[in-house]
Structure formats: structure tokens, C-alpha cells
Nucleic acid binder design. Structure first.
Lengths: 149, 149
DNA sequence: GCTTGACCTCAAGTCGACTTGAAGTCGTAC
DNA sequence: GTACGACTTCAAGTCGACTTGAGGTCAAGC
């Protein structure tokens, strides 16, 4: 089984060593063993890291991502919650689409104030829809609380 | 012209007064006048706030959002940058789709470790694509630096 | 005319997600 | 066998985005 130093993982993933240590500290990823003092990572961690990056761009907190990944490499949250998250993402994609269109509109429309441009207002109408309020739950006090234990 | 107290704006927008004050402090929104000490907001601010919320769910920082909105209610960034942002959003939507599908897959697939499930890995392949690295630029020192001035 | 309650300011605190820095430990190459 | 460089730990700092709290102001209703 292929082992990697933290430096190699950082290189391949683009995630700095300090962050990798932090992720390990909070239990998001795990190093398989040590070579002297040095952490050794399985190649698996790369996949996990891209999953984490994905989750981050989707706006999930590390705590939420940890929940989706689970300690053992798989989710420890029930099916229906996963589906609920998926539906969240669906809604978020729609929001993104609205914003994208709004941006494109603003880039092209020569109106002096877009807030008054009817086309623009119409674009935004869909977005005044019920908003997904994310919990902002509380881990992260000094010393780096471990996630999920 | 319809004027509103901060409480009413908070009520209608779902954004707490403290946040509204903060947004005004950093120049994201503006109150039109004062009634005694009390800020008076134009109904316009509601549209602006939903735009801000939209930008936030899309993962933009308040500084970036301020750039898109502009001081005068409209963007002070050039067309092509707006288009670039729109393209960013496009990519982000694709990421979201990958994650959504991954989540749905995880919810259904009975495999013991998804990191080894070929279907799952295939889902993620697309996401190891070039990633949009956001600048994480620096406002926000003590006292609430104003944005864009 | 006084109470009430919604507002105000300003400083400081919190939270998540990291980064930085000082001081120490190794294994490999010379 | 020693120098180097990549790692290590641990505490503290930073940054964005707010929230909280103490103490103050004011207009409207009684």
C-alpha cells in the first residue's frame, strides 16, 4: 500500500500541510501510521480531500462535511438526511443560476440602475423564495475540538 | 417614498438589525436618512439584501459582493470580470451537481466503502478538475473597514 | 411629564477555519 | 558523524462575519 508524506499529499492535493494537520486534528482525515514522527497517508486521502473541497465550495462547514464523510470513511447520517442535503444543493444550484443570469444581465444591460430595471428585478424574483438557513453549529473552541466524538 | 425602520427591514428581510448595522458600517447598504437617531431605509434595500444573500450562498465574500453591487447601487467592476464571475458560478454549479449526485448515490448504494465503489469514484472524477481558488482578500480589521473607499 | 420600548453607539467577544512561529526530532546525503 | 531539510508539537495570532453588552437617546402613548 502506497504511503505518502504530508508534503506529497500537499503537493498532489493543493492543500497546505498546516491545513492537513488541522484536518487530522479535528478528525476530518486520518493518517495511517507514522514513519518516525512523520505522518504517512494512504492515497485514499486524496479522494477524500477532493470530496472535502467539493463540500466546501458547496458551502458546507467542515462539521457538516465530517457528517457526510463519516468517521469510517462513510456517512453516519441517515438516508433521508442525505437526500435532504441533496435537495438543498438542488436549491442552491437554482440560486446560483439566478445569480449567474443576474451577473450576465448586469454586464450587458445599459440601464443606469439595475435595481430599477424590470428585467433585473424579474430575474431576482425567483430568489426571494424561501431561503435555506444553514445552522452555523458550534464546534471549534480553542484547541480544536474533534468532530464526531 | 416609503421609509422603514431597521426593525421593519429586519422583519421583512430576515436579516437581524445587528447585521444590518454591520452591513451599513462596511458600506454594503445605506440608510437614506435618520428619524431622530433611527436609520430610515428605502424599500430598495430589500432587493439589495436578497442580492447579498444570493451572493453569500454562492460563496462570495461581502467584499466581493460589494464589488458586484457597487457603491452607487451598481457594479463598479468591468464587464469581462462580471462575465468571469458568471463563468465561476457556472463551474460551481457543476461542482454542486457532482456533490448532489454523490450524496444521492451514497444514500442509495449499499457498498461498504464508497471510496472504493467504482460508481462513486467515477462521479468524483469530474470534480478533480481545475478548482476555482477564491482570493480570501483582506478587509475586516478592528472597527469594520469600509468597503470600496 | 413620565414610562416604555425600539432604536442608538462603541468596544469587545465569538466562531469557524486556518496560519504562523518557536523550539524540537528525525532520516538521508555527504 | 554531522549538516540539512522536511517534518513534528503546541500556543497564539488572524481574518471575515457577525453578535453581545453596557450605557444612552428619543418619540409616542398614557
Amino acid at each position: 500500500m502506497r504511503m505518502m508524506d504530508i508534503g506529497e499529499v500537499a503537493e498532489l492535493s493543493g492543500v497546505p500541510p498546516s491545513t492537513l494537520r488541522y484536518y487530522e486534528e479535528i478528525g476530518l482525515i486520518r493518517s495511517i501510521s507514522r514513519h518516525g514522527l512523520r505522518r504517512q497517508f494512504d492515497a485514499d486521502v486524496l479522494l477524500k480531500l477532493s470530496l472535502i473541497e467539493l463540500g466546501k465550495t458547496a458551502g458546507f462547514s467542515l462539521t457538516e462535511i465530517a457528517g457526510m464523510l463519516g468517521k469510517d470513511g462513510r456517512p453516519d447520517i441517515p438516508r433521508d438526511q442525505l437526500h435532504a442535503k441533496a435537495d438543498d444543493l438542488q436549491r442552491q444550484m437554482l440560486d446560483l443560476r439566478v445569480l449567474r443570469d443576474a451577473l450576465r444581465h448586469v454586464a450587458e444591460c445599459p440601464a443606469p440602475s439595475h435595481l430599477e430595471c424590470p428585467t433585473f428585478r424579474k430575474l431576482l424574483k425567483g430568489a426571494t423564495r424561501r431561503r435555506v438557513t444553514r445552522p452555523r453549529s458550534g464546534v471549534g473552541r480553542r484547541g480544536g475540538q474533534r468532530i464526531g466524538e
